Simulated scan of single mutants.
Amino acid sequence: MTEERTLARLDVLAWVLIYGGLFTLVLGIASHGRTAVGGWSLSVLGAVATVAGIVVIVVRARLSRKP
């Protein structure tokens, strides 16, 4: 059983990870021409953050509300 406040925080965390990760991924792709190592690093970091956000959504979906 989870409180509403905790569920709301998980929602915010999930979407911040997803949108932040996608933004970082795009920055990494855009910077591949200038610096290969920096571009790949940003791309991998963005992809990991996006996947982490998706995992948080799955975890959030399995939690039940407190009665």
Rank of each mutant, 00 (worst) to 15 (best):
L17C: 15
T24N: 05
G38M: 13
L13Y: 13
L13C: 07
P67A: 10
T50C: 09
A8P: 00
S31F: 12
L22P: 02
R65D: 05
S64K: 15
Y19V: 12
G46I: 03
V12D: 07
G53V: 02
G46N: 00
L7P: 00
V58G: 06
M1H: 13
S31R: 12
L45Y: 04
S43P: 00
W15M: 14
E3R: 03
L13P: 01
R62W: 02
I54R: 03
I29M: 11
I57M: 07
V26F: 14
G46Q: 01
V16P: 04
E4M: 11
T6I: 15
V16R: 05
G53N: 01
T6A: 15
V56R: 02
L42S: 10
G33W: 05
P67M: 04
V56I: 08
L10M: 13
A8Y: 06
I18F: 13
V48E: 03
V51S: 05
E4I: 14
A8K: 13
G28C: 11
G21N: 12
R62Q: 03
A14D: 02
R9N: 11
R62V: 02
V58S: 03
E3F: 13
A14R: 07
L63R: 07
V26Y: 09
L25S: 09
V26L: 15
S43W: 06
I54Y: 05
L63I: 09
L10E: 06
T24K: 04
L13F: 12
V44Q: 00
V58M: 06
A8D: 10
S64N: 09
F23A: 15
S41N: 05
T35F: 11
A52N: 02
K66S: 06
V56S: 02
G21E: 05
E4K: 10
L22Q: 06
K66R: 10
T2D: 04
L7I: 12
G28S: 05
Y19G: 01
T35H: 08
V16E: 08
V48P: 00
W40K: 08
I54H: 03
Y19N: 11
T50H: 02
